[in-house]
Amino acid sequence: MRPSSLQAFGVLLLLSAACSERQPPPPAGPPPDAKRVNPATVGRVSGKVVFEGAAPGNAQIKMASDPVCLRENKDAVSVETIKVSGGGLENVFVYVKDGLANYYFETPSAPAKLDQKGCRYMPHVFGLRVGQPLEIINSDPTLHNVHALPDVNQEFNFGQAIQGMKNTKTFTAREVMVPFKCDVHGWMSAYAGVLDHPYFAVTANAGTFEIKDVPPGTYVVEAWHEKLGVRTHSVTIGDKESKDLNFTFNVQ
């Protein structure tokens, strides 16, 4: 190939990259047969994500590449990949995967928040709704880039050079999960579950979770963990019923 045809090749590559940008459609309004949840009949799903076996130690983060991060973390910090407390696994995203049929839910206008503090994402795992604003804050006196790498939604990457900067983003399609990373600080990662309904939770201390106000019905509930994969269970909730649901993860 001569240089001239090479340049044409470059232009073609450029065009192909531009054309491959995906733009999911914005969330639609309620469909004609949409159902609303009756608050008088709603129930609850709660339980625990159990971690079986000995918890592997999480690697310590080396923050030497940014003196500000070192200064902000006087004590040693570890990655939070497998965080076990009281026999339960934390940072598991538990959500109703299937069964809500044609229920319709208003999109919340209050933003979900993702903070960068001490050169970590807070929270590490979280859920939000399709169309709900996500406020991304830099509370650190250093620079971060916020890089979301969805499969279905639109990828974005922007910088927050100054402490206190805030940017708002929204996701237009359901996606479990959207990974976030900071390419400045390679250890920083977060995951967002984007859903078109409010039935999700993230396991806290001792791996417990609670999903409230679930309408009666039969659902597939999934528990997602960044490293250990997914577990699913089916559950049927009657009128005003509370069900216990436990998931078990282990390191194979």
Partner: peptide, 16 residues
């Protein structure tokens, strides 16, 4: 190899 390709999200500027 350090995976820092996108650590500066803008171009030709650098963080503005």
């Amino acid at each position: 190899s350090t995976g820092s390709g996108l650590s500066v999200p803008d171009w030709p500027n650098t963080y503005g």
